[in-house]
Amino acid sequence: MTPTTAHLLYLIFALGGVGIYLLLPKAGRSQALAGAVIGVISVAGLLTVLAARVILPDATTVYFYLFATIAVLAAARVITHPKPVYCALYFVLVVIAVAALLVLQRAEFLAVALVMIYAGAILVTYLFVIMLAYQGGSPVYDRRSREPLLAVLAGFVLMAAVAGRAEDLPQPASPPTVAVPTADAQDAASQLHDSNTGAIGAAVMTKYVVALEIAGVLLLVAMVGAIAMSRKKVPVERFAAPVRPIGQVGREVEPY
């Protein structure tokens, strides 16, 4: 990346920051329209800058930019929409776009797993909780944000710092379609097998089996914790054993 491209990128990031800032729910007149316009412009600019380096776009590149755009725009809408239900739905869109991107990178298993777990389980749970805590109308905490300026500043500075250096990494030689045997013979398990699923399965079951087990325990603990957290407290006296004075005879009566 030439320095001018880098500077252009920073400019686009700045523009994007302004757009997000305007889009965040604030008191006073909504500047969402202006924010949306600026945001779209910045995304377009980003595309232009990045895609301009490509001489001959092939299908992978086109799909990449398409889904990347969708992902970024949907993510922007997730964080800026005043209504939480819409945030959740836009998030589903983000998940699907990311899954598509993963497919593009030959990580099919992960893509499907992402869709299943996120869109299928997590988002449904979110929607349930949103309905549970429905407050009606537009409460104040949805209409206003905390320190939008500082948050945008901090986040976008971080983003620019990281993204500006992304070019320093070497490019892969060619997209690997089949497994390229590595020099490390002990790493046979981590080579790409015929299918992506098989490869992940082999890696997880052999090399990362401990992590797998721990992940299972983690899930169990989380389940128990979630149940323990949300249970109603029951007064203990209802289950206490009756105190029987010494010497008293008679029929025992159940406490309840």
Binding site: R146, E147, L150, A154, V157, A161, V162
Partner: peptide, 23 residues
């Protein structure tokens, strides 16, 4: 006492460190 305030401070710190390290 606001969690997000603390998080903001942390992010600001990370941003500065990243800037310093990378730049």
């Amino acid at each position: 006492g606001m969690l997000q305030g603390y998080a903001l401070s942390m992010v600001a710190g990370i941003a500065i460190i990243v800037l310093l390290v990378f730049w």
